[in-house]
């Protein structure tokens, strides 16, 4: 039971970075290999706010979210839009965007190494236990999960109940048809890319309250996000959430019952199983 809840808490926050990548890949058609670095930047912000000002790291969210949004919007318009313009088909755009964002991740890691040094960092905040359903859980994990759930809920409402969300879904389904109904596809793609980056950074701030980070650990999260997005079916928000919870559970199971060092192996094993038996992902359509 402890494993179940702990796994769900972890998975709930993984869902954030996965949603970020799902938005960027499903709508803007950019496979953003630097999304893990965005998450780490958010984590650094949480660390800095707590250690420098002794206030709740959640305060960092107030500037992490708009800054990450603006930064990703700029990245899309300066670095990625030229690739979009010259790509003759979707496959070429994917390859180009993978290469470009891969390079960008190195730049970001370098900047963070310069700013924060190469050592591991973590901080202890709200590490007191809270009793739920008969067992003790760390308050910081529970709170992070609650905030992640609120953010996911907000995203769900945005995408399914607003006009902007309608245009986002339309572009995800078919950008050409979206252009024919007077949707400004480039603007929607840029906004969604920015939103995806902001969500990933927020996830990083949340994770920093109970995980240990260093400047180069971003790639691990990018991989996990990729695993979740593929597992859940590309472009499917529900699928990403379910897959994220499954991954959180699987990792916690393995870390508790086997060895904490095997969490990444567990993620890959899950990934391979899904690809072998249901390559379109849990909720994806058959033609990927």
């Amino acid at each position: 039971m402890v494993i179940l809840l702990t796994g769900l808490f972890l998975g709930g926050i993984y869902a954030l970075i996965a949603m970020g990548l799902s938005l960027q890949y499903g709508v803007a058609r950019i496979m953003n290999l630097a999304s893990g670095e965005m998450l780490v930047a958010g984590a650094f912000a949480g660390f800095w706010v707590y250690t420098a000002f002794s206030v709740s790291p959640y305060v960092a969210l107030f500037f992490v979210v708009p800054l990450a949004f603006a930064f990703n919007w700029l990245i899309y318009n300066w670095l990625l839009l030229p690739l979009v313009r010259r790509a003759k088909n979707r496959g070429q755009l994917e390859v180009d965007s993978i290469l470009a964002t891969f390079g960008m991740s190195f730049v970001l890691v370098g900047v963070m190494l310069m700013a924060f040094g190469g050592s591991y960092f973590s901080y202890s905040w709200l590490a007191r236990p809270i009793e739920l359903l008969g067992s003790n859980y760390s308050q910081n994990r529970v709170l992070a999960f609650a905030v992640a759930a609120v953010i996911c809920g907000g995203l769900y409402l945005l995408i399914n109940r607003t006009r902007l969300g309608l245009s986002i879904r339309a572009v995800a389904v078919d950008p050409r048809a979206a252009g024919l109904v007077a949707i400004d596809v480039k603007k929607v793609a840029a906004l969604t890319f920015a939103l995806g980056g902001a969500v990933a950074a927020a996830g990083g701030t949340l994770l920093s309250t109970f995980l240990t980070f260093d400047a180069s650990i971003g790639v691990v999260f990018t991989i996990k996000a990729l695993v979740i997005v593929i597992m859940g079916g590309v472009g499917d928000i529900r699928g990403a959430i379910v897959a994220a919870l499954a991954l959180g559970l699987a990792e916690t199971l393995v870390a508790t019952l086997l060895d904490p060092g095997l969490t990444l192996a567990a993620a890959y094993l899950l990934f391979i199983l899904i690809l072998l038996f249901r390559p379109q992902g849990l909720f994806g359509r058959s033609a990927l």
């Binding site: 078919d174 400004d184 359509r285």
Partner: peptide
């Protein structure tokens, strides 16, 4: 840009129809 032209009142049904297949 194309979306402004639709706003102005000119609509196109392209070859291949251009509908949202999954909706």
């Amino acid at each position: 840009p194309p979306h402004r032209i639709v706003e102005a009142g000119l609509a196109l049904v392209p070859e291949g129809r251009g509908i949202f297949g999954d909706l």
